[in-house]
Design a protein around this nucleic acid. Sequence first.
DNA 1: TTGTAGGCGTTATCAG
DNA 2: CTGATAACGCCTACAA
Lengths: 339, 339
Amino acid sequence: MDIGEIARRAGVSRSTVSYALTGNRPVSEATRRRIQTVIDELGFRPNAAARALKEGRTRTLGLVIPAAGRRLTDMQLGFVATVVEAAAGADFDVLLSPSGGDHDRSFERIVTGRRVDGVILMEIRLEDDRVSRLRRSGLPFVAIGRTRDTAGMWWVDIDYTALVSRCVHHLADLGHRHIALVNRSAELIAAGYGPGHRALAGFSEAVAERGVAGLDVCCGDDAPAGEACVERLRAEHPEVTALVSVNEAALPGIQRGLERAGLGIPRDFSVAGVAARHWAEDFRPPLTAADVPTHDMGARAVELLLEQVSTPTAYPRHLLHTPPISLRSSTGPAPRPAT
Amino acid sequence: MDIGEIARRAGVSRSTVSYALTGNRPVSEATRRRIQTVIDELGFRPNAAARALKEGRTRTLGLVIPAAGRRLTDMQLGFVATVVEAAAGADFDVLLSPSGGDHDRSFERIVTGRRVDGVILMEIRLEDDRVSRLRRSGLPFVAIGRTRDTAGMWWVDIDYTALVSRCVHHLADLGHRHIALVNRSAELIAAGYGPGHRALAGFSEAVAERGVAGLDVCCGDDAPAGEACVERLRAEHPEVTALVSVNEAALPGIQRGLERAGLGIPRDFSVAGVAARHWAEDFRPPLTAADVPTHDMGARAVELLLEQVSTPTAYPRHLLHTPPISLRSSTGPAPRPAT
DNA sequence: TTGTAGGCGTTATCAG
DNA sequence: CTGATAACGCCTACAA
């Protein structure tokens, strides 16, 4: 069934049906209604491929997610969900591309095959092949995260440097003199994952500024890793009395580790961090943390992308979120040394 | 840049380029190589829309996920990830469609607009509009889960009835006489969500069979709900000494609730359930549970769908998983009544 | 207000 | 072994 079928049944020409469909030309109320009736009757919808071919646009966005295999973190999932939702709100569909390392079949198919009007990129590294690839292709794209060199690039990101720095200052204000940073996994850091590096930068800087001792450790993205991490920390650096976590998935493990070590939060040990709200609220006691606005970020990324799609010459824009740190109850004065 | 450009540069006709690309007709090695060179040089890939229009297929699968807004559960996320991965393995892209109850613009777009060659449906209800819609459309589809009437339908599911029943038997064998079922949310049950109903069916049946007292409660898909659920359970039914959970996201809360109530697991209280492996292993102590093979199920769903796409006349197939219950350490003999 | 015709980039059927 | 050419279904000048 195609537009011709509708035209025949409605007794009009194909173009009239098309115009009735798109509204790109006035159609008399009478014929419009006749056409609509036939369409409803047959449940017709224009073929997306034909339309895309003719119009040169697909009304589809590509969403590049971290390569399959690794489980997505909650935060990443949050982005996926809100991107899809925001796109749907603009009547755009979302094509998923799991693309990890370098040249991925799916990525190439989507980009070079012109399957989408624009791309949203997740889990950006400081140097990222996909970004350069996309830059070359001329396909509009928005990064959730950013590369080292952001020239001419559209992106949405969280200011991990500032956020971690603030956490350190907060803890230092409370009298803590030995503070640890629980970062993301060693592999991610080694791969040049931006937030990991920026968190570390903010940490080092703040720690130096306050003249306190800073210790940074990598930690896998799950509870067991978090627990192991705390155990090691206690064993090797018992002087540490507070930690800042940018690894939300490790939080339950961190909590368990502290518990098992017999440390009360925040009486004996303070914890602060950056995490999606529900992680922070699930922590016991509720975590003093910068709540990552995944929802907003995903929606903004789509917004920027659609803007770029409709105005390819637009000047690059970006959004750097620095959500406030919500003071909950996981941080307190440093315990008196047990002299 | 199109196929004509390549043809010109390679000094051949457009059809030859096409044949070199698809392999649908022998092309002399010499010209094939010449064409390939030009293609590599220019980084050409055939336009997906044109190809879809001509071939009548899109090499894309639709994945219908629960409506945005609600956070996806870990299990659902697992399906998404493995479906995408499996599809990518077969050089298929995946188009996401968030379609909850009714307002399915995106769903309609994808189905009627012929944007995909087939659809995978998640979170199936016993009566499901999307299933009937898809049945009518003639578009191949596979459900992860199943409706009440599965006639002529392709699906992959977990046998919640059997699994929950086994858990109950296991607990009854251990001497528990008062067992609770922690089900999914009341809304989901009310909406006719299959697993919820089938879990309940298996529970009621097994409980009756063993002559033990059964109590079923609904519980939201998150930790706080799990904790609240346990609290209520303790307050209103202190005689209960064991529970079966089919709500993995509530598990951390269940654990916390039991802890706060001062109950040791499994000394004072036993817990069994159905959950993805990592949830079970994160439980303290590790949870005796049927490990839901999300990975396998997603991959199988894609397999079935591709089979159906390539052989539309194939006889409907389905897969009912009944993973074994892994005995870990969260279940033990019923405590002696405190007489 | 409506109809006619051409073309978007491919593939596949004819010829050669 | 290779070229011309006609569709695929839609949109949109151009004509009426």
